[in-house]
Structure formats: structure tokens, C-alpha cells
Design a binder for these strands. Structure first.
Lengths: 146, 146
DNA sequence: AAATTAATTGAAAAACATTATCAATAAGGG
DNA sequence: CCCTTATTGATAATGTTTTTCAATTAATTT
């Protein structure tokens, strides 16, 4: 099921601003802020209002078509959603985002925390930060050059 | 080492706004936004500027005396830092925060992600959301009452 | 204990981000 | 192709964070 169908099946229209936002995120490897999205779309010759970007992101996030992530400096950004439960890892150098699936690996941790704190765990936020393959490459080349 | 010493040893003064913010966070079980901190302090008869709250939080966060956390709705809040590496679990009902230590439990997950994505993992953001013991109690009481 | 000095504060303004309002527009069903 | 209604975009309102700078205050020196 593509994103157009998700919109339709939930009673929403496939409008121009929504199309533009999805298209841009589909072609972006890194999280973008609402302002970055707005600016990029204007610069590529499109015309839409900032407000529509906010509204599109709100709706698309609700439908899990896009995800809100936090950069390592705490600033928020939006990336394409992958459907199903997953998490993101962000490159601290070029900001490229990758996703990885599942939460089975957290179940041991969660059980331990439930035992320790007596909280009942319902949900979680997990993001990893690191260096992507391409930036590792660049770094080692620079090192060799010295 | 208490927070006053941490400030001094890093060349910062123990000023009134910083004292007020720390004092409030020490007595709050839930994350507070800058505005909530400012309002609470004014209401308890103190006098300080909003700007000082922002500045105090920025510095205290840098020194790891307070931590920035994300509520399950995505809004940010500040809680007392615990020193050393730790994470937080937040109650979805009363917003009470608890902390749990360590990241050893994540190492298996991290290795797996490194293998899958070829990223080199450097850091992570982990928060759990759930129901605290007191709110579990309340819920089961209400249930029985029906 | 008073004087000195430099970090820190607070008020105001500026900059920036988000949300509300509402008439005009456009998507999708008939 | 028309009709209905969700959606848009412009404007304004609201809210948040940062900048600026003279006045204040914490901590050090005398």
C-alpha cells in the first residue's frame, strides 16, 4: 500500500502540498525541519504555504508515513516512515539517516527496568547516533593523508 | 560533589537564578519546561527573568546537572541529572520520571545494528514510557470499583 | 570588611517558530 | 462536468527562544 492509498483509505485527499512533502522526503536521506522542507520546495520552483507544510507533516506523522526524529543536538526533523515498528540511526557528520527494525532486542532491558523501577513499560523512544559508512571512509582517508 | 561545587570548579558562579532552578528541579518528580519552571518560581514568591531560566538550563545541562528529556507527546522537559550514564522512564499518566542506569543492556543491540547498517555507533537516545507504580494502583482500584 | 573586577542578570526588543482564522480553491464522488 | 466539502494559503495572533546592553552581584583581592 503506497502513501496515496493510505491517505485515501483514511478519508484524506491526495493534495498538492502533501504530494510535495512526501516527494521531497522520499528523496532526502537526512531528516528535515519544517522550514527546510518549505525552503527546499520553494527553491525547486513549487509554490505552497508554510502552514501547509506543518499541516502535511502533522497528518503524515499521524498516519506513520513520516517519522519525527531528534538530531543529536536535540533539534527535531522529519524522515520518511518505513511502516512497522522501527528506529533510526543518524550520522553525526552528514546527518544521513538509516533505519533498523524491531524491538525484540529491547525486551530484556525492558524487563529489567520493570523489575527495578516497578513501572509498567508501554512504549519507548530509541535513536542511535554514529558515523555512516561513507563518512567513516572520508575520515580514514583524511587520516592517511596526514 | 554537589552542584555548587560543580559550578565553582568549572569557573561558574553560584548565582540566585541557578540556585532557584536547581532547587525547583530537586523537588520536582516530573520533567518541567522552561516556562513551567519560570512560572513556578514566580508563583512561589521569587523574582527572576525568563531569560535567566533559559541560560541556567543551558549551562546546567552542559554540566550534566540537569537532563533534557522528551515527553511521549514530543515536548521537551528538564529533570535533575543523576551523574553518570543513565536513562529515564516517564509515566504517561502523572508524568513522574524515574531513571535507570547503564547501557550494557544495549550493547548486543548496538552490535547488531552496526553489523546491519555499517554505521559506527557513538551515542544513543533511549527513553521508556509507561505507568508508574502509583498510577497502576489507581487504575486497578478504578477497575474494581466498576 | 570594604574595594575591585568580571561574570551574570533582567528588561526590552528582535528573531524565530507555531497555531488559529476564514474566504478562496481544488480533489474526488456522483 | 458539476457539486460538495476537505484543504489550502494569506494574514494575524500567539508562543518560544535569542540578542543586546546597562545595571547588578558573586567572588576575589586588598
Amino acid at each position: 500500500m503506497n502513501w496515496q492509498e493510505v491517505l485515501s483509505e483514511n478519508g484524506y485527499r491526495v493534495s498538492e502540498p502533501r504530494r510535495l512533502v512526501m516527494q521531497l522526503l522520499e528523496n532526502s536521506s537526512q531528516p528535515l525541519t519544517p522550514l527546510q522542507i518549505y525552503s527546499a520546495l520553494l527553491q525547486s520552483g513549487n509554490t505552497l504555504g508554510m502552514v501547509s507544510v506543518y499541516r502535511a507533516l502533522e497528518l503524515l506523522t499521524e498516519l506513520c508515513l513520516v517519522c519525527l526524529v531528534y538530531n543529536s543536538d536535540g533539534s527535531p526533523g522529519y524522515v520518511l516512515g518505513m511502516g512497522g515498528h522501527h528506529h533510526h540511526i543518524l550520522c553525526q557528520s552528514c546527518h544521513k539517516a538509516a533505519s533498523f527494525a524491531g524491538s525484540e532486542d529491547l525486551s530484556a532491558l525492558i524487563e529489567k527496568v520493570e523489575a527495578d523501577t516497578n513501572y509498567r513499560v508501554k512504549d519507548h523512544l530509541l535513536q542511535l547516533y554514529g558515523i555512516c559508512p561513507a563518512c567513516q571512509e572520508k575520515q580514514s582517508v583524511r587520516q592517511e593523508g596526514n
